Simulated scan of single mutants.
Amino acid sequence: MLVRGIRGATTVTTNDADEILLATTELLNKIVQENTIDPEQISHVWITMTQDLDATFPARAVRTIEGWELVPIMCSLEIPVAGSLPMCIRIMLNVNTDKTQAEIHHIYLNEAAKLRPDLVERTQTLS
């Protein structure tokens, strides 16, 4: 068994706690669904947000999902690169799995689909 990173990102339209929590939950649920993940498989979760989002910790959304209470989660700010995508939440799940890199489905929702169109197209083709 290997540890594989599964990436995902999404955007919100406002710096609002409820919107951030909803978007984080939606993204995580889609990653879990597309990759058939059980919380027991997860080594840890890394979540970042752009500096224009500070209304809440996105980890709060993960903590409300049954079975995820003990999964280690860390939140951080993205590096503030000029011209980068604003209002963006990114997730990296590190999962213990027998899947190959090619079998992993990375998920990019909303405006974040612009970040990795190659992976968005690949995931849509595999689904």
Rank of each mutant, 00 (worst) to 15 (best):
E40L: 14
E40S: 15
E40V: 14
E40W: 02
E40P: 00
Q41W: 01
Q41S: 14
Q41A: 13
I42H: 05
I42C: 07
H44A: 08
H44W: 08
V45H: 01
I47M: 11
I47T: 04
I47W: 00
T48W: 03
T48P: 02
M49C: 07
M49W: 00
T50W: 02
T50N: 06
T50I: 06
Q51S: 10
D52R: 08
D52M: 09
D52I: 08
D54T: 07
D54F: 13
A55K: 05
T56C: 13
T56V: 11
T56R: 01
F57V: 03
A59T: 08
R60D: 08
R60N: 12
A61P: 01
A61E: 01
A61S: 10
R63N: 08
T64E: 05
I65C: 06
I65A: 06
I65R: 05
E66A: 12
G67H: 06
G67Y: 04
E69T: 11
E69C: 07
E69A: 14
L70K: 14
V71W: 01
P72M: 04
I73A: 02
I73W: 00
I73V: 15
I73P: 00
M74V: 12
C75D: 13
C75W: 00
E78K: 13
E78G: 03
E78L: 12
E78V: 06
E78P: 02
I79Q: 12
I79R: 13
P80C: 10
V81L: 14
V81D: 04
V81T: 12
A82K: 14
A82I: 13
G83K: 10
G83D: 08
G83S: 10
S84P: 01
S84K: 13
L85H: 07
L85S: 11
L85N: 08
L85D: 06
P86K: 12
P86F: 08
M87R: 14
C88N: 12
C88D: 03
C88M: 15
I89H: 03
I89N: 06
I89Y: 03
I89W: 01
R90K: 15
R90E: 12
I91N: 05
I91C: 04
I91P: 03
M92H: 08
M92R: 11
M92Y: 02
M92S: 09
L93V: 04
L93F: 05
N94C: 09
N94E: 14
N94I: 01
V95Q: 03
N96Q: 13
T97M: 09
K99C: 11
K99A: 13
T100H: 04
T100L: 12
Q101A: 15
A102T: 05
A102W: 01
E103R: 09
I104D: 04
H106K: 08
I107E: 04
Y108S: 06
Y108I: 07
N110D: 15
N110E: 14
E111Y: 04
E111D: 14
E111F: 02
A112F: 00
A113F: 00
L115C: 09
R116F: 04
R116P: 00
R116W: 04
R116T: 05
R116K: 14
P117Q: 08
P117C: 09
D118K: 11
D118R: 10
L119A: 06
L119M: 14
V120I: 11
V120K: 13
E121S: 09
E121K: 11
E121M: 07
E121Y: 02
E121C: 03
